[in-house]
């Protein structure tokens, strides 16, 4: 285990009926690093994400975040601790404007919004900060556009802006580049690099050039198990990894 691990999973296992999706995974994410989780389709990467953020309940194993055991906590409570995830399918609020999307995250600063008797104009106090966050991801001109009408790459950018609005200590990004055009990939890569300056990031990503470019450390999953772990140069030369990706007999 790394000396300064912010998030660790020990013996993480998820069994579905007659099928082990994640099998005894040990993972340790160092504070301040960009850690990538890669592997062929069906390797259990997204399941792993769902377990770490408790969108799924692990069958066995223990998850600790900043030294605290979060294995039995609820998803919303984990988010409140500063461990915030994104989703593979762009997760925006489609009928909200881009500004409102970001604002709903900024609203969390008020604590719980159970005040149903108050006018929503109190939320206008977050408009400036929301505009700043949108500017950060290049969405200024789309502030008043409904999220549903944004092009795909912009939706992903909006999702990142919304996640950043919570000012999380650690981000879990599930395939941030999936389905993106090349120009968008560059923009989002630069953005992730910038936000990683004072945060920890764990990401699932298929685009290996992005992974090579961004991450300090890589964990390779295959069939629910950890196959290899280390820096990109090391892992990419590992014959087992090559075999898992390309198949036996081709490597």
């Amino acid at each position: 285990m790394a000396a300064d691990a912010i998030l660790t999973a020990v013996g993480l296992t998820k069994e579905f009926k007659g099928f082990v999706a994640v099998d005894d995974v040990n993972l340790s994410v160092e504070r301040g690093s960009i850690h990538a989780l890669i592997g062929p389709n069906g390797a259990g990467k997204t399941t792993c994400f769902n377990l770490l953020t408790k969108f799924l309940q692990p069958t066995r194993g223990k998850i600790t975040y900043k030294g605290d055991d979060i294995t039995s906590m609820a998803s919303a409570d984990i988010a409140r601790l500063g461990l915030v995830r994104s989703f593979q399918i762009s997760a925006v609020f489609p009928h909200f404007t881009a500004l409102e999307n970001v604002r709903i995250a900024l609203q969390r600063k008020r604590g719980d919004s159970y005040d149903f008797w108050r006018s929503q104009t109190v939320l206008n106090q977050y408009n400036d900060r929301a505009a700043e966050l949108l500017a950060d991801v290049g969405l200024t001109e789309f502030a008043e556009v409904q999220a549903a009408e944004l092009p795909y790459g912009r939706k992903r950018a909006l999702e990142i802006a919304t996640t950043l609005a919570l000012d999380p200590e650690m981000l879990l990004l599930d395939e941030p580049m999936a389905g993106m055009a090349e120009a968008d990939v560059e923009r989002i890569t630069a953005l992730i690099k910038r936000i990683a300056a004072n945060r920890t990031i764990l990401m699932v990503e298929h685009n290996l050039s992005v992974v090579a470019n961004l991450s300090n450390r890589i964990t390779v999953l295959a069939r629910g198990k950890v196959l290899a772990e280390g820096p990109y140069e090391e892992v990419s030369k590992d014959p087992r990894v090559i075999e898992a990706y390309i198949g036996a007999g081709h490597g």
């Binding site: 998803s75 919303a76 915030v84 995830r85 609020f93 909200f96 149903f116 006018s119 939320l123």
Partner: peptide, 29 residues
């Protein structure tokens, strides 16, 4: 009408729009 247009109503609509995302933002839906 006021409830729908309150900070509470805003969260409520967000949950209707995308519940998992609302959870991931820390709302106890």
């Amino acid at each position: 009408y006021r409830i729908v247009h309150s900070p509470f109503g805003q969260v409520l609509k967000a949950i209707r729009e995308n519940e998992p995302r609302a959870v991931s933002l820390g709302y106890q839906v």
